[in-house]
Design a protein around this nucleic acid. Structure first.
Lengths: 145, 145
DNA sequence: CTTTATTTGACTTTCTTTGTCTATTATAAT
DNA sequence: ATTATAATAGACAAAGAAAGTCAAATAAAG
């Protein structure tokens, strides 16, 4: 397969992430664009298509002077949580966020809390947690229009 | 991350606060500006963007001769270890809301979810839930300053 | 040939830096 | 005591420095 520019940038970033201690890198969009002699929005394109949550990456960024894009690879260690349920729960939250039922902060707060709490539970309790939180959240959102 | 000047000043102040006995410092805006070779309003900018109530800081100041800016880090008084019933949990949430660490919507959403989930649990699991959610929430709020 | 993915560029938003002008307060002068 | 002066900090706005958005043009895949 002939590698597109997007593929090359993707690979470049993934190598950087793999090599990094924290499985996390920070880049400057403009700088990276210069490295690959392309427009900055090309970098945005690569990040938004290849480094989504569903692929195990999270991104944050800051605009303005000394701005950056941070990409983190998160690994859900399969022995601690049943990927299936956590994943479905995350999916639900993401959907709700997309549909503007949840703000980004609310969304990330819920994810953090549920993930953290679930890690203290036994397998069957964990499953119950995802389920009951999802139902409670649904109920709350219905009650509040 | 390439640190902006604002980031550096922020970090400097946070170190000072952490080291202080009372989690409180007093600085002179002009002096600090000189230390960092910048205009005084840069210091104002850092303080107003990074040391807001929602991040757990309060500021006071006085103009004129012997003027100062005082920054206080306030900590949530509730001891998380003892959060093991609904009442204490709700108290914590209310406190966080008063301190602007949580919006009203976030606050009521959390209450609803935790109450609803807890109603499906046995007594000892319920205790555990309040406690682990409180911990996770605290962790989240700390991570996001 | 149609559909999907990539590339590009113009425009927008956010965050930072700097500067100017205003408000407040302690102190010195009257 | 009253007033003037100097020493602060605050408010606000302009300029600068990134990143984001969106849609049109192009290329690749089916």
């Amino acid at each position: 397969m002939k590698k597109s520019l997007a593929d090359k940038i993707e690979q470049y970033l993934k190598v950087l992430i793999d090599r990094s201690e924290e499985k996390q890198i920070e880049i400057q969009r403009t700088e990276l664009a210069e490295t690959f002699s392309c427009v900055p929005s090309q970098v945005t394109y690569v990040i938004s298509t290849r480094f989504q949550e569903k692929f195990g990456y999270r991104t944050e960024s800051r605009r303005g002077g000394k701005g950056f894009v941070r990409i983190t690879r998160f690994t859900i260690s399969s022995d601690i949580c049943t990927i299936n349920d956590a994943e479905k729960f995350f999916q639900l939250i993401n959907e709700l966020e997309e549909n503007k039922m949840l703000d980004p902060k609310e969304s990330s707060m819920l994810k953090h809390i549920v993930l953290s709490v679930s890690s203290t539970l036994k397998d069957e309790d964990r499953q119950h947690l995802y389920n009951s939180v999802a139902r409670a959240l649904n109920e709350y959102l219905n009650l509040n229009q």
